[in-house]
């Protein structure tokens, strides 16, 4: 069944965008309703999962826009972040990653999700979020830096 097969994966996507579990659940619910209502519009061009995922992501973005999330620059305290070594990821599970992504500021988190995980270009993100492409780029750079810092912190604690 469609729901059973994809609900878990899409729940992960919703959790990446939402502020909390309840909101993620709402997004997933609305996403599946839209999928079922518009399933006849799928033209068998490209992956079906990709098509469904786009719907869920759009619902998530719409939900975030309703909350009037401002994507603004945040002043960085640390100038340089030490480079991560590959072994730094050894102890990191998916839940840990979700947790540190979740700790990102809204703008960073959304741009990071769209660019890195969904694979949208900065121009596409700019259109979707009604921001400049340059803003999207800078948000991604900062999000990445902040995530790496978080991973290093977690690594220190683990050691």
């Amino acid at each position: 069944m469609l729901f059973e097969q994809y609900a878990g994966k899409f729940m992960t996507a919703c959790r990446r965008y939402a502020k909390d579990e309840m909101e993620a659940e709402d997004i997933l619910q609305e996403g599946f309703i839209r999928i079922f209502n518009n399933i006849q519009q799928f033209k068998f061009e490209g992956s079906f999962e990709g098509w469904m995922r786009r719907i869920v992501v759009n619902v998530a973005l719409k939900s975030l826009q309703k909350k009037k999330i401002q994507i603004s620059e945040i002043k960085e305290n640390t100038a340089n972040t030490p480079s991560l070594e590959p072994y730094a990821f050894n102890h990191l599970g998916e839940e840990d990653l979700l947790k540190i992504i979740h700790q990102l500021p809204d703008g960073y988190r959304i741009v990071f999700n769209l660019a890195v995980i969904e694979g949208y270009s900065h121009e596409e993100i700019a259109k979707m979020l009604n921001i400049q492409a340059s803003t999207s780029r800078s948000q991604l750079v900062k999000a990445r830096k902040m995530l790496q810092q978080q991973i290093l912190e977690m690594q220190k604690i683990a050691v």
Binding site: K9, E85, E94, L98
Partner: peptide, 22 residues
Amino acid sequence: MTDKLFDNFIRDSLNNYSSPVP
């Protein structure tokens, strides 16, 4: 570690990860 490797690691980890559904 380059940004590309970092991005790939995050994408590979989370793209197919299945969270518990309420």
